[in-house]
Design a protein around this nucleic acid. Structure first.
Lengths: 340, 340
DNA sequence: CCGATTCGGCGAATCGGTTCGACAGACAGT
DNA sequence: ACTGTCTGTCGAACCGATTCGCCGAATCGG
């Protein structure tokens, strides 16, 4: 069932059918209706490949996700969902492509085969070879997170540096003098993962400014890692009364270790962080946190990408989101430590 | 940069370039090398749309996921990851398409536009209109879970009925006399969600056979729902000493409610379930469960789908997985209830 | 009443690959 | 020497859309 068959049945030429559907030229009301009727009867849909070939675009975007071997965080999952949603609203399809060495081939196909009109790149590094590849290939893209040289490129990011700073200030205001930052994994930081590094900077700056003592701990993205990490913190630095975390996946583990040590949140230990709203609310007790608007970010990324696709020469845009801290129940005024 | 340009630079015809690349006809070693050299210099990749148009296939599969508004469970996430992995290994791309009323349009594009060679359908119902649509469109597909009439179709599923039955038997062997099944949400069950309904059947059959008293509770897919559900169970049926759950996302909430009621797992209350291995292991205490091999399922689904695409007339295959119950620490011998 | 304009529609070219049939030249068999 | 086979290559058709240029008929203004 192709456009020629429709044309034959409606007694018109193929071009007329095409114009009737696209509306790019006038077609008489009468023939338009006849064509529409034939199409309805034969549930015809234009072949996507043929259209893509002629138009030079696929109406598909690529979404490059972190290596699937490492489980996605809820934040990332929410982001993926919102990209799907926004794409659907714009009549775009989404080609999912995992990143990582194993999937090098898939990435190449994505770019060189022109299977997509543009790409959204998740979890990028300060230096990211994929960014250079995309630039070289002339493929429009938007990154989640930004590289070291952030001007002149298109991205959406969360202001980890500022947020972590605000968290530190909030704790300082409540009298905490000795706090810790629970960051993402050491591997990720070593590979130049921006959010982690900017969280570090924000933490160090704010700690210095407020005259606190602060310790940073890297932590893997799951509960056991969180458990072990918090256990180490309590052992090495019993004077610590609060933690700032940018590692939502570790939260259940942190909680477990605190519980085992007989510490209650927030009575004996305050916890504050940057996390997906859902995650913060499901935490027990509900986590005081800057709720990362992952949904909003997905929509913004798609919007930016479509803009860039429509006009590749447009001036680069970016978005640095800085959500407010939602006060919930995991933070309290510092008390003199009764342990140590 | 297209095949014509490569041909021009190599001083041969376009067809020769094509044959040199595909190997479908002999090309002399000499010209093959010359062509390869030109290609290397100009980093040429065949245009995917043109190839798809001529070949009549896209080398892309569609993965229809549950509505993204509802968060995916870790089991589903693991499944998606394994589909991506298996697809990449077969040099296939994956087009992600959300299901649900809002995304009707995306589903239509997927099928009618022939954007994909086949589809993997997640979370299907006993009666599923999407299955009929795919059949009518002549689009090869494999479902995760099976419809009411399961013969003659292609699917991969977990034997919820048998697994839940085995869980019940395990509890009965340990002396539990009064147990509950914590199922998926009432909505999902009402819409004819197979795994939930088969879990119910397995539960009822085994409970009857062993002469236990059993109660089934539906439960939403998140921690708060689990909390509320377990609270209700403890209130309505204080005699219950164990729960079988097929709702992994509710687990943290179940635990929380038990803890609040002063009940320790497994000392005072046994918990057994069907869950992703990762989820069972991270649970505290580690959950005795039938570990759903989501990764294996993804690979199997892709394998079945490629078979079906290659030979649409092949006899339908399906796979009913029945993983063993891994004994961990969340189940104990029943003791006389001290509460109630 | 005639030339200009508008309208609706048609035919053909095009996108970038794949593939079929043809064909020249080398070589073997009789 | 003549026929037959094999090898390497080429030209052209084709997949199914979009789009440009063109043309006949109807309409309009002077």
């Amino acid at each position: 069932m192709n456009i020629g068959e429709i044309a034959r049945r409606a007694g018109v030429s193929r071009s007329t059918v095409s114009y009737a559907l696209s509306g790019k030229r006038n077609v008489s009301e009468e023939t338009r209706l006849r064509i529409q009727q034939v199409i309805d009867e034969s549930d015809y849909r234009p072949n996507a490949a043929a259209r893509a070939l002629k138009e030079g675009r696929t109406r598909t975007i690529g979404l490059v996700i972190p290596p699937p071997a490492r489980r996605l965080t809820y934040m990332q999952l929410e982001f993926v969902a919102s990209v799907l949603e926004a794409a659907a609203q714009n009549d775009l399809d989404v080609l999912l492509s995992p990143s990582g060495d194993k999937y090098e081939h898939a990435f190449k196909r994505l770019i060189d085969g022109r299977r997509v009109d543009g790409v959204i790149l998740m979890e990028i590094r300060l230096q990211d070879p994929r960014v250079e590849r995309l630039e070289k290939a002339g493929m429009p893209f938007v990154t989640i997170g930004h590289t070291a040289r952030s001007d002149g490129s298109w991205w959406v990011d969360v202001d980890y540096q500022g947020l972590v700073g605000r968290c530190v200030n909030h704790l300082a205001d409540l009298g905490h003098r000795s706090i810790t930052l629970i960051n993402r994994s050491a591997d990720l930081l070593a590979s130049g993962y921006g959010p982690g590094l900017r969280a570090r900077t924000g933490f160090q700056d704010a700690v210095a400014e407020r005259g606190l003592s602060g310790f940073e701990y890297p932590c893997g993205d799951d509960a056991p890692a969180g458990d072990g990490c918090m256990a180490r913190i309590l052992e090495h630095h019993p004077e610590v009364t609060a933690a700032v975390t940018v590692n939502e996946a570790a939260l259940p583990g942190l909680q477990r270790a605190l519980h085992r040590a007989g510490l209650d949140v927030p009575r004996d230990f305050s916890l504050i962080g940057v996390a997906a709203q859902h995650w913060a609310e499901e935490f027990h007790p509900p986590l005081t946190s800057a709720d990362v608007p992952a949904g909003e970010m997905g929509a913004a990324a798609v919007r930016l990408l479509t803009e860039r696709i429509a006009d590749p020469a447009a001036v680069p845009e970016h978005l640095l989101l800085s959500p407010p801290i939602s006060l919930r129940d995991s933070v309290s005024r510092a008390r003199a430590p009764e342990r140590g």
